[in-house]
Structures are given as C-alpha cells and as structure tokens.
Amino acid sequence: MTILLVGLGAALGAILRYQLTRIGNHIASEFPLMTFLINLTGSFCLGWLTGSQLSQPVTLFLGVGVLGGYTTFSTLNSELSQLWFRRRYHIFFGYWLLTYGLGLLVAAAGFYAGL
C-alpha cells in the first residue's frame, strides 16, 4: 500500500515536471531555468513537509512520492555536463553553485517555516 502511494505520487510529480519543462522550452535561454526552479521549489516544499511532521502516509505520498518525482538529480547533472561540453563555463559554474547553494538554503527555510 505504501509502495503504491509512493509510486502514484512519483508519477504525478514527474508529469508536473515534464509539463513545466515543456513550458520552459519556449524560453530561449542557455541557463536550464526550469530544472533550476523545479529543484528549488521542491526543496522548499520538502523542507516544509519535514518540518511540519505530518502523518506517515501523507509524508510518503507527498514527500517521497510527489516531491521526489518532481525534483531530479539526474537531469541537473546531465544539463551541467552538456554546458561543460559546449564550453559554457560561466553558466556551468553559475548553475552548479546556485542550485546547491540556494537548494540547501530554501530547504532550511522550508523546514523552519514548517515547524
């Protein structure tokens, strides 16, 4: 049962990420803005969810499922690798440092907002 909650949540989260990324494709920018925003908003929400300590099924569905499926680590690094191979070093380092720096910051902000 918990497995189904996680799976369904992940499916919803991934579809949301896919639709947002499609919208983002219309923005002509070399900076992967959509993945960036998805990972930051997801980190904030999971921080909030963790801080507010809701019941286990809700946390599993929303946290492990929806937000786990919504945010992504593989696309982030794949985009970084592409920026490196295209020699866009400024964007590479900007995207890399901003994602991790702000990601940790908003996760902490979400956590304390949820307490």
């Binding site: 990420r17 896919y18 946290g63 786990g68 499926g69 919504y70 593989s74 940790l104």
Partner: peptide
C-alpha cells in the same frame, strides 16, 4: 530516471 533520482531529498 527523473523520478528515480531526487534533489529535494538530497537538500532536506
């Protein structure tokens, strides 16, 4: 792979 990996769990 998008759903298999996660950034939100990493940061939290």
């Amino acid at each position: 792979f998008g759903a298999f990996t996660t950034f939100s769990s990493f940061s939290v």
